[in-house]
Amino acid sequence: MARRQPDPSDSPKGSFLPFRHRHLLGIAQLNQQEIIDLLDRAEAMIPISRQRKTLPNLAGKTQINLFFENSTRTQASFEIAGKRLGATVMNMAVRTSSVAKGETLVDTAATLNAMQPDAIVVRHGSSGAVELLSQKVECAVLNAGDGAHEHPTQALLDALTIRRHKGRLNGLTVAICGDIANSRVARSNLILLGAMRARTRVIAPKSLLPRGVDQMASEVFTDMRKGLEGADVVMMLRLQNERASGKLIPSVREYYKFYGLDAEKLSHANADALVMHPGPMNRGVEIDPAIADGPQSVITQQVEMGVAVRMAVLDALLNKDADDA
């Protein structure tokens, strides 16, 4: 697999930039150099993760996973990442009624802060909620997805997956297809890929394209075949079933016909195009199962990169002494 550049210090204790942020709330807070640095850090974590080794980097530190929305995958990924670095990881199951969820947020923040954790990993259904929580605590806060705003570790793991296959991000054509309007994954990816000077395209029916999306993506398409023309990467997004019941999309079968990724549509992209999906997939809704499991798919690799990226981010945020040394 092509590497970005030969890296003399391929160990996690290599020379990385000191991470100047207290929290990771979104890709928008990072500049290009910081993105590259986090990807390099993640690259160095892959062998550790593969050998199922545990590093002592975060020994004695406490990481709390606070998920206001259910996400078995992301939560497990953060948990494994923390444990591989030696942190004590605690999962807080937050049961919320939709009415009282904001109240719980600030209250919970104060309560958790009193427990003196070193990091809180938060997922919340409201855009900006993680930033609000970060203002109420003294420890590092990692955004594991807030509303339709950002999901920074997803964008980083996607970028790492692409970079490992293509050797670069700069100049690649990346098509993001599906429910752009409601997707934090799309936003974080557009910001990251834009910062890395990739060519970004969004493909969706007009009812799933938010206003002003042309200011976030290089090109906007409603015709999937045209949008996939010359693409190096095809990122599919999950379509929530409730959106395909007549409000925004008349039916699943109509959506699949025009926006589901099948072999014919994929043939419009470059022959070596990667197929990606942040999961969980709706097979037969946004993607043909044969494509999801096909030779161009890197979907399971994305999951693997997720652990490495989260290890890198936790290490960057919590192990700052090592950077100084």
């Binding site: 855009s127 900006g128 807030d146 509303g147 339709a148 705003h149 950002e150 309007a181 934090r184 936003r187 938010p210 206003r211 002003g212 999306v213 200011q215 976030m216």
Partner: peptide
């Protein structure tokens, strides 16, 4: 509704 709401992930 507009680019700013879209960027912040807020409904317009």
């Amino acid at each position: 509704a507009g680019a700013l709401a879209t960027f912040r992930g807020l409904k317009g």
